[in-house]
Amino acid sequence: MSAFPIIRIITKLLIPYILLFAFYVQFHGDYGPGGGFQAGVIFASALILYGLVFGLDAIKKVAPPIVIEKCMALGVLVYAGTGALTMALGGKFLDYNVLEHHVLPQWHVPSGQHLGIFLVELGVGITVTAVMTMIFYAFAGRKQVQ
């Protein structure tokens, strides 16, 4: 589809905003509507849009399947790792109260429950983005079998 200039230019204009919106939904999810799953699918849809318009080879340069594949598991690892971290700090599994700290309070660095939610939502976001993108690769990479 990269032969159509209107589609190509509109896509190039839109993708940064879609990505920015995905980050907003991800990191503002503690305050407004949203969270890891929503952000993940929005981020993945931006990647898929890029792949649709500029071709599978172009998107594979931006998001190499070998990296995305690892990210699928990385997200769950971040989530479960947060739980392991809270256990290591003496709390229960996924008990974010033990993540309370007093580093740079004037900078609003997330702390306690906020930090825990931030980390697990990040894990969800990474996994969902990676799984959606990998499924797109799996479908788009197949050629018609006669």
Binding site: G29, D30, Y31, G35, Q113, H114, I117, E121
Partner: peptide
């Protein structure tokens, strides 16, 4: 939640 207003996320 130490002041996080979004109940759904919490």
């Amino acid at each position: 939640m130490h002041g996080l207003p979004n109940v759904v996320t919490a």
